[in-house]
């Protein structure tokens, strides 16, 4: 079981996993759990400034998350992490001369050069995240106690989590390096940050989740746990399973597919538990969608149900 407390005590939580496993739904559910626990929580995802479809925003009845931190549900803030905003903030802080900074931003070809420089987009996203981490109230308390990030597809996740190491190898000194080191001080500290991998109780998704764990292990971002989503609730005893397996072969039955899924699910989950000792949280497969599903999963995560 993932202790909700451990997760809520962190500053940054990355929710990752392959497409279609329910990342956004779980991110949204976690935001509710955090809000109920009285945390100042912000939900984020990486945007590109365009009018991209956002499955996460849909769960808050929005087409997209706002560009700046704004309340998107009672007690829950939301914002996109935007490369172009990151670049602007970064240049402003690096180029101490305001003339240079304005020149750099206002000069379209230069801006485009930055955006096209390998890894610069990721770096800008990273910087935008840093500004949310740094933001404080007048009393010195963080404005955003918990930042939830619904991460993009696996490859892109690793690109982002590996970024500080990569950049520091290329640019060991200077303002970029400083920003990366500051980021590392959060992201590589298991108390302050954690990546959670979402997967399904099926053969292939489990294999992919295990691969992702290996990848994450190489990037120094600690993996704090796994969510196994859509675990079938119906459980058959050993004897029932054997009897049904033989019976189902004799005629086409409604429910046969669901039966085989429970069998596969059991096997897949066992395999996962043999392969990793990380805390794992199962989430039930329920016949709900959208906001109702989010609310139900939040109950499960908070241990209410």
């Amino acid at each position: 079981m993932i202790a909700p407390g451990d997760l809520l005590e962190k500053r940054v939580v990355l929710i990752t996993g392959k497409g279609g496993v329910g990342r956004s739904t779980i991110t949204a559910a976690l935001s509710q759990v955090a809000q109920r626990a009285g945390k100042r929580v912000i939900v984020t995802e990486i945007g590109d400034g365009g009018d991209d479809y956002s499955a996460l925003a849909q769960l808050y009845a929005l087409r997209q998350l706002p560009r700046e931190a704004t309340e998107i549900a009672p007690g829950i803030q939301g914002a996109q992490l935007l490369p172009e905003v990151g670049v602007a903030q970064f240049l402003a802080s690096v180029l101490r001369s305001s003339f240079l900074s304005r020149t750099a931003l206002g000069f379209e070809p230069l801006r485009r050069l930055f955006m096209a420089t390998p890894s610069f987009r990721e770096m800008a996203v990273f910087f935008h995240l840093l500004t949310y981490l740094r933001a404080q109230h007048a009393d010195g308390k963080p404005q955003h106690e918990l930042i939830l990030i619904d991460m993009p597809a696996t490859g892109h996740t690793l690109a982002l989590t590996a970024l500080p190491q990569v950049i520091l190898r290329l640019v060991p000194r200077g303002p970029v390096a400083e920003a990366m080191r500051e980021g590392q001080s959060y992201l590589n500290d298991p108390k302050k940050a954690g990546a959670y991998v979402v997967t399904l109780p099926e053969t292939l998704p489990i294999s992919e989740a295990l691969e992702l764990l290996e990848g994450l292990a190489k990037t120094d971002v600690p993996c704090s746990g796994l969510f196994v989503n859509r675990v079938p609730e119906t459980e058959f005893t050993e004897a029932e399973r054997a009897a049904l397996e033989a019976y189902i072969e004799t005629q086409p039955l409604f429910g046969a597919e669901g039966f085989y899924r429970t069998v596969e699910s059991r096997r897949a989950v066992e395999r996962l538990h043999t392969a990793t000792r990380l805390p794992t949280q199962h989430l039930p497969e329920v016949d709900l969608a959208g906001a109702a599903l989010v609310a139900r999963l939040a109950d499960v995560l908070a241990g209410v149900s």
Partner: peptide, 12 residues
Amino acid sequence: GIEKLKWLARKE
């Protein structure tokens, strides 16, 4: 087993 299967059948 069949009794439990009914639920899954209905869902499907």
